[in-house]
Nucleic acid binder design. Sequence first.
DNA 1: AATGAATGAGCGTTCATTCAT
DNA 2: CATGAATGAACGCTCATTCAT
Lengths: 204, 204, 204, 204
Amino acid sequence: MKTGFTDKQAHILTVAEELIADKGFHGTSVREICSAAGVNVAMISYYFGSKEKMMASLYRFRVERTLENFSAFTDELDGKTPTEQMKILVAFIVNHILKFSYFHGFVTQEWQSTAEVKDTLQEFYKEFAAIIVRIVDAGNASGDFNCKPAAEDLLATMIGTIIFVIRNRNFYEKYIDEDADYFAAAEERIREHLTTTMFGLLRR
Amino acid sequence: MKTGFTDKQAHILTVAEELIADKGFHGTSVREICSAAGVNVAMISYYFGSKEKMMASLYRFRVERTLENFSAFTDELDGKTPTEQMKILVAFIVNHILKFSYFHGFVTQEWQSTAEVKDTLQEFYKEFAAIIVRIVDAGNASGDFNCKPAAEDLLATMIGTIIFVIRNRNFYEKYIDEDADYFAAAEERIREHLTTTMFGLLRR
Amino acid sequence: MKTGFTDKQAHILTVAEELIADKGFHGTSVREICSAAGVNVAMISYYFGSKEKMMASLYRFRVERTLENFSAFTDELDGKTPTEQMKILVAFIVNHILKFSYFHGFVTQEWQSTAEVKDTLQEFYKEFAAIIVRIVDAGNASGDFNCKPAAEDLLATMIGTIIFVIRNRNFYEKYIDEDADYFAAAEERIREHLTTTMFGLLRR
Amino acid sequence: MKTGFTDKQAHILTVAEELIADKGFHGTSVREICSAAGVNVAMISYYFGSKEKMMASLYRFRVERTLENFSAFTDELDGKTPTEQMKILVAFIVNHILKFSYFHGFVTQEWQSTAEVKDTLQEFYKEFAAIIVRIVDAGNASGDFNCKPAAEDLLATMIGTIIFVIRNRNFYEKYIDEDADYFAAAEERIREHLTTTMFGLLRR
DNA sequence: AATGAATGAGCGTTCATTCAT
DNA sequence: CATGAATGAACGCTCATTCAT
């Protein structure tokens, strides 16, 4: 699977991803990333050209990996009814965003991202919206659904809801069994909530 | 309602809010804020103790003002049917978040906020969730609704969806008439979408 | 005497001048200058904006001080014969360049100076060339001289010769009494040599 | 004449010379030189030990090549009258310095050269001064000249004047026909001026 | 109460050099 | 013999903050 990143670059990006997800782009220093990655402070400039360019690489890195998973996910949809497909789609997106949430919250805020980076993310959203359209249309044809809400609205609601739950853990965890692992429990809850939400919009 | 902020402090916070909403906490320097506010660079440390503490004050400042609006908003609900109340609530939250979205996306990301700040924001969410509960219960009693979805889930979906649309303007604006003002057009669209979404969850 | 530099700025420039005269612009670090000046490392950026801009200030600083001396020097020429005036001029330029030689060797080499800086130095040269023209013309009118060599050539020879002697001390000091102070002895020698040279060009 | 430089070393030195002449020692990076020379960045350390030592080699390299030209030049003097010899000498030195001026301006400035490097350059000056002495003595014996100015002073004036004109092109080019090639026009002018200057010092 | 000059720490980056291959 | 990946040190600069006034 060709990505254009060497092992060392991938290693640095993985470490950087975790830190930046936690503390943001400006809140994470090059020294911090390199120290955590066990490499010399000069390596980020050496490998990526600059911290900014490393960030652009990080986006590309993540999108590439996400789109790889997409194939597996879309294969899974084959032969299922639109209702089942929608359930699978919600489960996939909840699982994915919980893993890489930070990734969907940067653009336009905190990070004056370049056009290239914004495009990288849009690529993902458009790809995803296209799948939603396909399922919605199939469901309306088969009679599973009787409404055609806009794909971009469904997408906004799904991703937005998940990110809110992640970012406002402090608030949301009060409604979750405190003995349970937050992310595992939250994943299940959001999946169910969003599934219900989607069907509420598709069948009226 | 006692706020504890002098006029000068309020002025600085207002200026800071706008800049930070645009460029993030780390992306906005103390010099920049003070320069834009027309005050001495030492004033932030002087008035608030530090940039971090100013940020905490900013949260408190915003929550206080929001809660002030709440009274007007809750007054508006009086004597309406639960269905109408829910419509008003959606309209209020969409309008509010569009104005102060930055404010709901910081916590846990980009900013290692203190417990105090997190509490400040939770105060708002809890207050809001309480209103949702009240409307949902009233609607179930009156027969307007026949379901009792969790208030925190409805909240997450409402706020999350709005923030997504704001942060991913690049993506979402493709689905909006390009001649229209983005925020005005988006506000209307999201309001309708979320209203439909809420009713889809309350009546099944 | 208004120069536009505060005492602190003047202090830093004086220290910087000495170090840069010795080791060049790129060879002298900001830390080194600040350390020698007993000020914080941030002061150069703080006072001048950047190291580059400090260098531009240094040129201006030196030219201003040189042009101040000029008035005193030109006053001294009044009422003298052209022959005496030429002797005074040589003595002045030798003395001045020996003090600030570094200053005349930077432009176009080692430092990609801005147009502004180059202009600063040219200002000095042009001012000086004008005086030479005046003396040469007066001398030809009075009969002291019988030739009109180009002022820019006389200037080039005077300044060039002096700088050579400074820069190639290693070579030149072999011809100077080793018990004497190099600069004092060199000053006298060059003054005599250049005086002879000038008269050799003015009377043939 | 044994130089001790391999072809690769000579190639690197030639490239380095051009760059350093333009931007100075500190202003030219090892990467830049190696990149321009089409060799690996490690080669300068590998071949010369360090950047500093490469610089010492560069001086030696240039002096060796200059001294090689000297034989041809001194041969040319044979059988000429001292007056003609002096003209040839001025023409040679002007031409040479215009080509390798940078080379004569480094020592003691911008570069803390080692004793070895300084010696390398002195070797050249002493050799040159010896020739001047010979011509001056011959001219005084033949009656071409009637003065014996110090060779080191003549040398300082010649080299200094030329370097000034090169370094202060900005100033000097105003006095040169702007349609002409600067270096070609300057060479002719300086040659004539220095020839006149030398004869002015040798015949009084 | 408020200033603005000044600070030390840390920033992202580039440097000449080293070393395993 | 030659490479190029990798390094530690130092670079110029900006940061939030302090302190004498």
